[in-house]
């Protein structure tokens, strides 16, 4: 019901930038990082500020930014209408153009029903991450975005071995390599003591095209060696008030 187009990104050290509703003052959330430039602050003038953390619908899992995007689409049901918005986090401001498309009106009616009455389909159980506030670091978050969101690793140009997470480049002839997101289970365990969302399986996946993934299943489904699986993006937690998206495994 819509199209999201990336417009541009501006990088720099942007700490948490807050602009409270009804105020024109930009507040710096973390003074330990570089001072905000006048140009950066100016981008925020006249823009609505919304938080992805307000979008939780009971039993729907961790919607993260998906709920926020849905809200924005619902505000412009007509096809061809556009909305520019910026996401400022982890060291840069990225501007997007959101364009309403066909089906938005019907989607809006359904979304309103869900907002009022709660989720209306059976959902598979997902981990309850409320209150989970593990160690997190804003510089690390910014530095490893490609690793976390695009599964960007490196590959040894001589041996062909894939390294994910990527290793420092010096001393090995490595080149950038992006993991594919489908593969086959090599081994697994169903863990009963991990203190969040269990029991659920941890699986090691031999990925198509090279490299391996070791991580959680998105929910507790039966796994076996040799099974085809794929990786899907999920919200792991909001440690340090940063939404940590990463990948989990589902049957393919």
């Amino acid at each position: 019901m819509g199209v999201l187009r990336f417009q541009r990104a501006q990088s720099g050290w942007f700490p948490d930038l807050w602009r409270l509703a009804g105020s024109s003052q930009v507040i710096i959330g973390d003074r330990s990082l570089a001072p905000v430039s006048a140009a950066a602050a100016a981008q925020w003038e006249g823009m609505a500020v919304a938080s992805a953390t307000g979008w939780e619908i009971e039993r729907a899992g961790n919607l993260g930014a998906a709920g926020l995007l849905a809200m924005m689409l619902l505000e412009m049901p007509a096809k061809g209408r556009t909305k520019e918005f910026a996401a400022a986090a982890s060291g840069s401001v990225r501007t997007f153009l959101l364009e309403g498309g066909p089906g938005a009106t019907a989607a809006r009616r359904r979304a309103e029903r869900v907002r009022q009455g709660g989720i209306d389909v059976d959902r598979l159980p997902t981990a309850d991450i409320s209150g989970f506030n593990p160690y997190a670091s804003q510089p690390r978050y910014w530095r490893e975005l490609a690793q976390d969101l695009r599964l960007q690793g490196v590959r040894d140009a001589e041996t062909g071995e894939v390294f994910f997470p990527p290793v420092p480049a010096r001393g090995r002839p490595v080149e950038p390599f992006r993991l594919q997101r489908r593969g086959r289970i090599l081994t697994y365990t169903r863990d009963h003591v991990y203190p969040l969302g269990g029991p659920m399986s941890m699986v090691v996946v031999e990925l198509d095209g090279g490299g391996r993934f070791y991580g959680q299943t998105a929910w507790d489904f039966p796994v076996e060696i040799g099974m085809r699986v794929r990786l899907v993006p999920r919200l792991l937690h909001r440690g340090g008030d940063l939404p940590h998206y990463f990948w989990k495994v589902v049957a393919d």
Binding site: R140, Y141, D148, Y188, V193, L236
Partner: peptide, 29 residues
């Protein structure tokens, strides 16, 4: 150690791991 692995380790790569979980992978294989 369970709490250490869940709370203090790498914010994305390490999540879901426990010490028994890591060795259980070898048992399964």
């Amino acid at each position: 150690l369970i709490a250490k692995t869940a709370e203090h380790t790498h914010p994305t790569i390490a999540k879901g791991r426990t010490a028994p979980g890591q060795f259980a992978l070898l048992a399964t294989r």
